[in-house]
Design a protein around this nucleic acid. Structure first.
Lengths: 334, 334
DNA sequence: AAGATTCATTTGACCGGTAAACAAGACCTG
DNA sequence: CAGGTCTTGTTTACCGGTCAAATGAATCTT
């Protein structure tokens, strides 16, 4: 590996002068700079980022922890984070936890050892406890798309999940639905369910626990099986709420497979509004979660915290959610 | 930040002894080790990985460059790479290029500056040129899911894309299809098309350029539009080949929207066989690409190269592809 | 009991940069 | 022309670890 010293010798200057040319932090006389640049080109010198990191105490790298990237929701978040980082010359260290608490803990420990300048944790309940283990309170961390109780002392960019669930319920209620089932990943999506129930409670309607179905896996297949169980439990139900899009895809199929039409016989409403759901048949109505926006804001927040040297302000920032009404919901069959 | 020196003072030993305890490389007397460990716990010491990297010349980090993560194919690759890395205590630096050559070049430059110990590049044609710029020929790089001409001098784990396309064509031919259209992302998926055509050529059938439709975007929406165009161009076609799953999803919808049935009127065959396509209606027949396996092998290959200190052997490793026949293909309508 | 081994710890150099204080000459300025 | 300011580049120290060789004490030989 060719080092700065090699370049310096070749250009007949000191290491430091080379450093000045490379970083541009200190002025260097044009002809000297040219000599140095020539030497750099000749030798094919590339600064060693690790050495620079050690000297400056900053790695130009941010860590991101997500439960998985194999879901449209989180892959959108990853993309957006990487986008923002790239614009600022930062690199991304990605960790996925796969609903494995130990793994999550390990990741956290690894990243906090000054390998990254900041850490963004997206929607992973497994990490609530380990967060307390963090040695340095000044280390910038932020949470994104956080759903369960928000640890105070950490900034969060998320939405009001309960309200989002409420929006879904309100929509179904306004269409006259009374007998509905909910396919909900529990306990992760508890709040979405609470919101849904609240909307029905306003009209003195209850969604009993017997009409809540937890899928065995967070995939369309899981949603499919859960919806089938729901239809068996109450053949007369007129709507099914799915606590996230992937489940909704399966629900849609299960309803159709049972010979019922969507939305004629049964309305289906999803949650997240990721890209693929606009293309189902019928197109899925869903509560839209601004995933990219959340990711972008959380990332910017951390970048700001890094340059300012201060830990990010401990604030919860709630983004707006909205309902995207497409073709999978309609008036309740009488 | 508490350093090794701080721990050393507290435990009444030298920095080096602390290092020995932490790394376990050199034996330390049990009671001293205990004292050191106590000091570590008291002070909450965490080794500075950057400093360690500088000293050892190894970062325990691997770079991965993919075109995007917002596609089931690449997100599977990312997941699998991260899996393998995690098992070996490595971290993942993720870069996405978004079909942006400049960005790709920038990423490559950044990563090659000793920030990562090895680099895995998955299916990105934009990076063929910049690869030549790499300063150190001993730097471990491998390609994965590489489709276009394979740069010699670099190890590759991929499949025979032409053969995979051939499998699709053979299947359609065996079902009696003669008039077919291809929805192909070009020039990226040129080889898949070549293989498809080869299968038809065996029976003296040609798929003319007028029956090849390039989508404007690599999404279901793109596939939808392209398939619609195909059906307009030849209303009597009996099968459509899609060069990747996302397109196939759109193709499926377009065919159904036109009032035709799948596979009764038109067969649809996809490419990649990512998780979501097993759940379409009808379930999609597709050429299966072993994405996870490719990722796993390529990653292992690089990890081996790192520990052996030698650049990975320059070998092209071709994994087997297979056809997964589901319900979207059937005998050609007469 | 003196020399040879072993084990545990320490010493000093080094990884490849950056930061800040410092020196030397050119340029003002009164 | 003495003294101060600007430029430009050099010196010295440091970031926080690891490595290999050196030291010292304890144990084993014979």
């Amino acid at each position: 590996m060719v080092t700065m010293q090699d370049v310096a010798v070749r250009a007949g200057v000191t290491k430091q002068t080379v450093s000045n040319v490379v970083t541009g932090r200190v002025a260097v006389r044009p002809d000297t700079a040219a000599r140095v640049r020539a030497a750099i080109a000749d030798l094919g010198y590339k600064p060693n980022l690790v050495a620079r990191s050690l000297a400056t105490g900053t790695t130009m790298t941010m860590g991101l922890i997500v439960p998985t990237v194999a879901s449209p929701f989180y892959s959108e978040i990853v993309e957006e984070v990487e986008n923002v980082l790239d614009q600022h010359g930062y690199h991304l260290v990605l960790c996925t936890t796969r609903a494995d608490g130990d793994r999550a803990k390990r990741q956290l420990a690894g990243l906090s050892s000054r390998l990254v300048d900041a850490l963004l944790i997206a929607g992973d309940r497994d990490l609530t406890d380990p967060l307390a283990l963090l040695p340095d309170p000044r280390f910038p961390i932020a949470l994104c798309a956080w759903e369960t109780q928000i640890p105070d002392s950490l900034p969060v960019v998320t939405i009001d999940y309960e309200h989002a669930g409420f929006l879904a319920g309100k929509h179904l209620r306004s269409l006259g639905h009374k007998r509905v089932a909910a396919v909900v990943e529990l306990p992760t999506h508890e709040r979405r369910l609470t919101g849904l129930r609240a909307a029905f409670a306003r009209h003195r309607l209850r969604i009993g626990d017997d009409m809540v179905f937890a899928p065995t896996e967070a995939t369309p297949a899981g949603g499919f099986a859960a919806a089938r169980a729901a239809l068996a439990a109450d053949p007369l139900l007129t709507a099914i709420f799915a606590s996230h899009d992937l489940l909704a895809l399966g629900v849609l199929e299960a309803v159709k497979e049972s010979g019922r039409s969507v939305p004629g016989d049964v309305s289906v409403i999803g949650f997240d509004d990721t890209a693929p759901v606009a293309l189902t048949h019928p197109a899925l109505t869903a509560v839209a979660i601004p995933a990219r926006e959340m990711a972008q804001q959380a990332t910017s927040l951390l970048l700001r915290a890094i340059v300012e040297g201060a830990p990010p302000v401990n604030s919860a920032q709630l983004l707006r959610t909205s309902l995207v009404i497409r073709d999978s919901t309609g008036p309740a069959r009488q």
